[in-house]
């Protein structure tokens, strides 16, 4: 039983040992089939199916309350009562090697609302690491993830200060750095730039593109312009259903479904 599980384990993106037997080029990074979720008898997600390539950015958009955050939480197993099939790099997440905690470290989730722990900035960055790794982590590694999260320049002189002294936008970027410190094999971001200025937004977008060269990145955003800039695959959700998904250019120029057109019409009005 145990050995079987091991044999079916997904390729570890971090390991340098090549595993050709289980790494076919076109294995989707994430495959969701017929995912449905009820919370307190109310259907929140209904029969959602899509897949993400093994690298590249995908954008999840949809009106408020569509179930975007809930979907991300399902992918990270923070919600577990869903029905359906969910495979990451070909492996069923319910039978993940190392259990759900290991899965959550592999699938980095950056929540919509930043939540920091009452310790220093540096300690927050390494919060998800094991005890030994926390002690051994190098200053360079901390700098590296903070740079990737476009936060290094603002905090480099105050790493030992309390994380609660940061602004909300900085906190959000610290949460990104905290997830990156775990070297995830996939990133789920819930409106990562919602409270950022245009410049930091650009920095984060640049890092997201860089990270997307190695792993699938799924990013929720309400910012249509940002969605266009990031490109890639668009997944449009409304009222707990997946309405349309496809290439970014196609979606924004020739939306197929009436819900998508309606949604984009409002977004155009928003942008003036």
């Amino acid at each position: 039983m145990n050995t079987q599980k091991k044999a079916a384990s997904p390729p570890d993106m971090r390991s340098t040992v090549p595993q050709p037997a289980i790494k076919p080029e076109r294995e989707p990074g994430l495959k969701v089939s017929g995912l449905s979720l009820e919370l307190g008898d109310a259907p929140i997600l209904r029969d959602i199916s899509f897949s993400l390539p093994d690298r590249g950015i995908s954008i999840l958009i949809g009106p408020s309350g569509a179930g975007k955050s809930t979907l991300l939480r399902c992918l990270n197993l923070l919600h577990q009562s869903w029905q359906g099939d969910l495979r990451i790099m070909g492996q069923d997440v319910r039978a993940w090697t190392g259990g759900e905690d290991a899965l959550r470290r592999t699938v980095g989730l950056i929540a919509q609302k930043p939540a920091l722990f009452p310790c220093s900035i540096a300690q927050n960055v390494v919060f998800g690491l094991g005890k030994k790794a926390r002690k051994q982590v190098s200053g360079e590694r901390i700098e590296q993830v903070l740079r990737q999260a476009a936060l290094w320049d603002e905090v480099k002189g105050r790493l030992s200060e309390a994380a609660s002294t940061l602004s909300v936008g900085q906190q959000q970027r610290l949460c990104i750095a905290r997830a990156l410190a775990l070297e995830p094999a996939m990133l789920l971001l819930d409106e990562p730039t919602a409270s950022l200025d245009p410049r930091s937004k650009q920095c984060i977008e640049t890092s997201l593109r860089q990270m997307a060269e190695q792993m699938p990145v799924l990013c929720v955003t309400h910012d249509i312009e940002q969605a266009k800039r990031l490109g890639g695959q668009i997944i449009f959700m409304c009222d707990g259903r997946l309405i349309e998904s496809g290439d970014s250019d196609d979606f924004f120029t020739r939306p197929e479904r009436i819900e998508s057109r309606e949604f984009l019409r409002w977004s155009v009005c928003d942008c003036g």
Binding site: G108, A111, P118
Partner: peptide
């Protein structure tokens, strides 16, 4: 304890035991 904190700790892969020791008890 704000549920976001608990959820953030869980999302980082902390086990129940670590969650209790490192997030709940200090708070």
């Amino acid at each position: 304890i704000p549920s976001e904190k608990t959820e953030a700790a869980r999302a980082l892969g902390l086990s129940h035991g670590q969650l209790i020791r490192r997030v709940w008890l200090p708070a």
